[in-house]
C-alpha cells in the first residue's frame, strides 16, 4: 500500500532541485510530514555515530537532550532520568578507549515492546520506539528487558515539562529519537548539538531511503551495532568501537 498522496508529491518536488530531465537532487533537509498524515513504514529512521569524532569530555548531546526534553535532575544519579548518556568504553587488552553516546537503539525487534503487558511500549510505523504513557502502568518490565539500559523510570513528581515531551511520575520513559522534531522535518536535538560543536559525530537519516547520506555511508563503510548478537536490530549504528 502506498501512502504517497498528490500533496506529498508536490511537496517533495518543491524541496528538490531539477538538475536535468530525469535527474533530481533531493535536498538534504528532511521533509516535514504533511499535517494529518501518519508515520510511514516507508521510513526507518536511524543514527550513525562515529566514536572517533566523539570527545570523551564533551556532553553537548546529553545537555541538548536534557534541554529539549525538559529533563530536570534531582542530584540523585541512581534514580534521575537519562535519555542519552556517554559511556566510556576501554579495551583492557589494548588500552584503546572510546566515549560512546548510548540512547534508545530503536530496535527492529524491541524486547521492551514484546514484554509490555498493556502495549504501552510500542514501535511506530517508521521504527521509532516510544512509551505510550497514557497506558503505561509503571511495572518496569521493559526496563528489565532492555539490553541497552535505555529506559528510565520517573521516580518523582515532574514539573516544567516541555510541550513536546509530556512526562510524569510513575511512568517509564526514554529517548524518542525526537519524534516531534522528525515529524516537523528537523533532526534530533543531540544530532544538531553535536554538529554545532563542529564534530558532527552523529549522523541522522532514513535507513529505508537508499539515497540518504546515512544509507550510503553504512553501505560503504564498516559500522557495528551494540549487542548485535541479540538480534534486536538496532537503528543506531556505531563506527570505531
Amino acid at each position: 500500500m502506498t501512502e504517497t498522496t498528490r500533496r506529498d508529491l508536490l511537496k517533495g518536488a518543491a524541496g528538490a532541485v531539477v538538475l536535468a530531465p530525469g535527474l533530481t537532487l533531493i535536498a538534504a533537509k528532511a521533509q516535514a510530514r504533511a499535517p494529518g498524515s501518519a508515520a510511514s513504514a516507508a521510513n526507518r529512521f536511524g543514527l550513525l555515530i562515529d566514536t572517533g569524532k566523539c570527545d570523551s569530555g564533551c556532553t553537548a548531546c546529553v545537555d541538548a537532550c536534557k534541554t529539549e526534553m525538559g529533563l530536570t535532575g534531582h542530584d540523585r544519579p541512581a534514580t534521575d532520568v537519562q535519555y542519552i548518556r556517554k559511556v566510556n568504553v576501554k579495551d583492557p587488552a589494548t588500552g584503546a578507549a572510546h566515549s560512546v553516546p548510548v540512547m534508545c537503539q530503536h530496535c527492529a525487534k524491541p524486547p521492551c515492546v514484546d514484554v509490555c503487558p498493556t502495549g504501552a511500549s510500542m514501535k511506530r510505523a517508521d521504527g521509532i520506539v516510544l512509551v505510550d504513557r497514557h497506558i503505561c502502568i509503571g511495572c518496569r518490565y521493559c526496563m528489565m528487558a532492555c539490553p541497552y539500559k535505555a529506559r528510565s523510570f520517573a521516580h518523582e513528581d515532574q514539573t516544567n515539562q516541555r510541550e513536546a515531551n509530556p512526562r510524569g511520575k510513575g511512568c517509564v520513559e526514554a529517548c524518542t529519537l525526537c519524534a516531534h522534531r522528525i515529524d516537523a522535518g528537523a533532526k534530533p536535538a543531540c544530532v544538531e548539538a553535536c554538529a554545532a560543536t563542529g564534530k558532527a559525530a552523529i549522523l541522522f537519516g532514513d535507513l529505508a531511503d537508499p539515497n540518504s547520506e546515512l544509507s550510503r555511508r553504512v553501505a560503504a563503510e564498516a559500522s557495528t551495532r551494540i549487542r548485535a548478537d541479540l538480534g534486536t536490530g538496532p537503528a543506531v549504528r556505531y563506527q570505531g568501537i
Binding site: 499535517p35 494529518g36 498524515s37 508515520a39 510500542m122 517508521d126 519524534a179 515529524d183
Partner: peptide, 11 residues
C-alpha cells in the same frame, strides 16, 4: 492515540 501511536500531527 493518533498523535502518539501513529505520529499524526497538526490535527
Amino acid at each position: 492515540d493518533d498523535t502518539l501511536r501513529s505520529g499524526i500531527r497538526g490535527a
